[in-house]
Design a protein around this nucleic acid. Structure first.
Length: 270
DNA sequence: CTTGCATGTGCAT
DNA sequence: TGCACCTGCAAGT
């Protein structure tokens, strides 16, 4: 259940566990049996993430030697000691001891390097990648009549940002999700980008999303830690009706871009 | 046991 | 704008 930080975290695990190793590539459930057979017995050379898109490259003569995975809303990729597959394992990579099991992906395809480049070219700037340039994104945002809450969900602009980071970074900066892109100041855009870079880098390392500042943590405020597994400590995400940690106003909820948006009407009035 | 919802996207209307 | 897709989990019957 991934925003970009999870995909980058997974790419890192792929590289540390498997880079340079010859792998068994199988499809226990059968869905991707043909694809698996083409790469089975080859070495994984490199895994890399762009936004929410994961590319796992193999050393193989086959032109389509890159596994292109998108987990979608419910897909998972889990590393576990190799045992009999449980559930619907669509694809399994294994070095004989540790297996990477793919379940419920949005897609899983074999592609060529040119196709990988074309897929990457469709994405905007990824706050997690050091080679990202936010300048072209600002040029589009500052001309847009769309709301910043909508723009943040657009993968052609902010690659890897999802519903939690959208809500949380806007709260942290006190920006209304309903403000049009063209009404943003340059320094506000810069703040959003910088906040995403910091938050998402932490997310990659922790493999979860924590956005509350030290002064608002459960320990600092004497409240109970968040218990659900849908993220870490956050200000607004799925806190509808609960008091804002800063001003006490009930957190609001409204669908935007087909997803539930959460914000504080007081702290994010403008 | 059944239902609904979820860190997402693409396609049909 | 709605909906289909795919899985896991929590809440409701």
């Amino acid at each position: 259940m991934p925003e970009g930080h999870v995909i980058h975290h997974l790419a890192g695990k792929m590289n540390s566990f498997y880079a340079g190793k010859t792998l068994r590539v199988t499809s226990p459930q059968g869905r991707f049996a043909a694809e698996a057979a083409r790469l089975d017995g080859h070495a994984l050379s490199h895994a890399e993430a762009f936004g929410k898109h994961l590319f796992v490259e193999f050393d193989a003569d086959d032109p389509a030697h890159i596994i292109y995975i998108h987990l979608g809303l419910i897909g998972t990729l889990q590393f576990e000691p190799e045992t009999t597959p449980r559930g619907q394992v669509r694809l399994r990579l294994s070095d004989g001891e540790l297996a990477a099991d793919l379940r419920g992906p949005q897609w899983c395809r074999l592609i060529t390097e040119d196709e990988r480049d074309a897929a990457v070219a469709k994405l905007g700037a990824d706050p997690i990648r050091s080679d990202s340039d936010p300048a072209p994104i600002w040029q589009k945002v500052k001309r847009s009549t769309r709301s910043i809450g909508s723009l943040l969900m657009d993968q052609k602009l902010f690659a890897g940002v999802g519903n939690i980071y959208r809500a949380e970074t806007l709260f942290r900066l006190g920006i209304s999700p309903f403000r049009a892109g063209r009404k943003l100041q340059r320094n506000e855009f810069d703040s959003i980008w910088a906040d995403l870079v910091g938050l998402m880098a932490e997310g990659v390392a922790a493999a979860r999303i924590d956005t509350v500042r030290p002064e608002h943590t459960p320990e600092a405020m004497g409240r109970e830690p968040r218990q659900d597994d849908h993220g870490g400590e956050v200000y607004t995400y799925r806190r509808t009706g609960q008091p804002c940690f800063i001003c006490g106003t009930p957190i609001a909820e409204q669908v935007m871009e087909g997803r539930n948006l959460f914000w504080c009407p007081e702290c994010q009035a403008k």
